[in-house]
Simulated scan of single mutants.
Amino acid sequence: MEQSKIANATESNWHSIKSAVHRRWDEISDEELESLEQSAEKVIDLLADRYHISPKDAEERLHAAVLEEENRSHAISEVQAAEMRFESDGGRVVPSFQDFHEAHDIYRARVYPENPH
Rank of each mutant, 00 (worst) to 15 (best):
G91M: 01
W25T: 03
W25C: 01
H74M: 10
S88V: 10
V93I: 12
A64F: 03
S77R: 15
S96M: 09
K56M: 06
L62A: 02
S54H: 11
F86S: 14
V66H: 04
R24T: 15
P95Y: 08
E60L: 10
Q38L: 01
F86I: 06
P55A: 06
I44Y: 02
A82N: 14
R50E: 03
D57Y: 11
I76R: 13
I28D: 00
A82E: 15
S54F: 08
R50C: 01
D45L: 09
S54I: 02
E32R: 11
E60K: 09
D49L: 08
E41D: 13
D57C: 06
F86K: 14
H52F: 07
E32W: 06
L33Y: 03
F86G: 09
L62D: 05
R85I: 04
V66G: 00
S35C: 03
Q98D: 13
R72F: 14
R61P: 01
E34V: 10
V94N: 12
A75C: 13
K42W: 02
G90F: 11
I53F: 13
V94F: 12
A58G: 05
K42M: 01
D45Q: 14
D89N: 11
H101D: 14
H74F: 15
A81Y: 09
E60H: 05
Y51H: 10
E87H: 10
D49V: 05
L33P: 05
S35M: 05
S77I: 06
V66T: 00
S73W: 11
Q98M: 06
R92T: 03
R61Q: 12
D26R: 07
L47P: 04
R61W: 07
H74D: 12
S96L: 04
M84S: 15
W25M: 00
S39Q: 06
A64E: 05
E60R: 12
F97I: 09
A81P: 04
I28F: 03
V43P: 00
S73E: 15
D89W: 11
E27P: 01
K56Q: 14
I53C: 15
D26W: 08
L47T: 04
A40F: 02
S39Y: 10
R92D: 12
E32H: 08
E41Y: 06
E78S: 06
W25V: 00
